[in-house]
């Protein structure tokens, strides 16, 4: 009797904890859609193509932010994925070399590093020498934020594949490059793609590293070496304004951000499955 009760209590407790853990996510999703969808409906397509309106004036949109975010995400992926993947491959394939030991330590440090400091670092090495904020500097900061995720997951993916697949690769006369990219990473593609996904998701939502690098603008020229807007930056600045239409736009922008995030997430999921 007593043991039954203890068992039931445990299950109840585990269930409640699980619920408690996922509730905030649903709350966020719910409040973003609840507040944001009506904004999108009200502004229509202009919300995606327009620019920021004057205070308390109807209409307008977040195009410069979407443009800035997408260019910086794409740039950082182009830079960060190859760098991260090769770093991960190196660490996994030559674990005892001193470079790979050092790289592993540095990656762990970046992983735990407050991202605002990454922004400050990029400001010191890029923004100040260039004399202005820019999309490139923002993308570079995002790359640094993304690197450890991509590298660590790549390393784990390679390590998760049983050694005998690598052995048979060598026994068939394949070189190390082919073994890693055509065999090991393909076998462990779930872990590998998860890493890319987390890296992408991470950079698509980051705000802090952009403050001192991309600078933020409400109207952009689109040039990569000039300051850029970004959806999370806009949300961050808009909610601090005293105008109600800016708050509306911030909620709408949050839906757009979430949509970009979900697209990345779902497409990666589909890739893993097929």
């Amino acid at each position: 009797m007593y043991r039954r009760l203890k068992d039931d209590l445990f299950v109840l407790f585990a269930f409640a904890s699980a619920l408690l853990a996922i509730l905030p996510i649903f709350h966020i999703l719910f409040s973003v859609f609840y507040n944001g969808i009506p904004v999108l409906a009200k502004y229509g397509v202009e919300f995606l193509s327009g620019t920021l309106p004057p205070p308390n004036k109807a209409g307008g949109g977040v195009f410069p932010a979407i443009y800035g975010s997408l260019t910086m995400i794409v740039l950082s992926l182009m830079l960060g994925i190859p760098l991260g993947v090769f770093a991960g491959v190196f660490i996994a394939e030559y674990p005892s070399s001193s470079i790979s030991k050092a790289a592993r330590t540095v990656l762990v440090i970046i992983l735990e590093f407050p991202t605002i400091l990454v922004g400050l670092f990029v400001m010191a090495v890029m923004v100040i020498p260039m004399g202005r904020f820019s999309a490139i500097a923002g993308a570079f900061a995002l790359t640094i934020v993304m690197l450890p995720y991509v590298a660590t997951y790549t390393e784990q993916a390679i390590r998760s594949v049983p050694q005998h697949y690598k052995e048979v690769g060598f026994a068939l006369g394949l070189n190390r490059f082919r073994i890693v990219f055509s065999i090991t990473l393909r076998i462990a593609k779930k872990v590998f793609i998860t890493g890319l996904l987390i890296g992408m998701a991470k950079v698509s939502g980051e705000t802090a590293p952009l403050i001192f690098t991309a600078g933020n603008v409400w109207r952009s020229t689109g040039a990569l070496n000039e300051p850029a807007g970004a959806i999370p930056l806009w949300i961050y600045y808009l909610v601090q304004q005293p105008y109600s239409n800016y708050h509306e736009i911030a909620w709408g922008a949050a839906v757009v951000l979430l949509a970009i995030f979900l697209v990345i997430f779902l497409s990666a999921r589909l890739m893993v499955r097929s």
Partner: peptide, 27 residues
């Protein structure tokens, strides 16, 4: 010198056909 291992280890992500042809093509 070909080798066969203790654990049957065809490449699990490849088809039967590709398992045989992959190394043939690479070599």
């Amino acid at each position: 010198v070909g080798m066969v291992f203790q654990i049957p280890n065809p490449f699990p992500h490849m088809s039967i056909y590709d398992n045989i042809t992959y190394a043939v093509k690479c070599n």
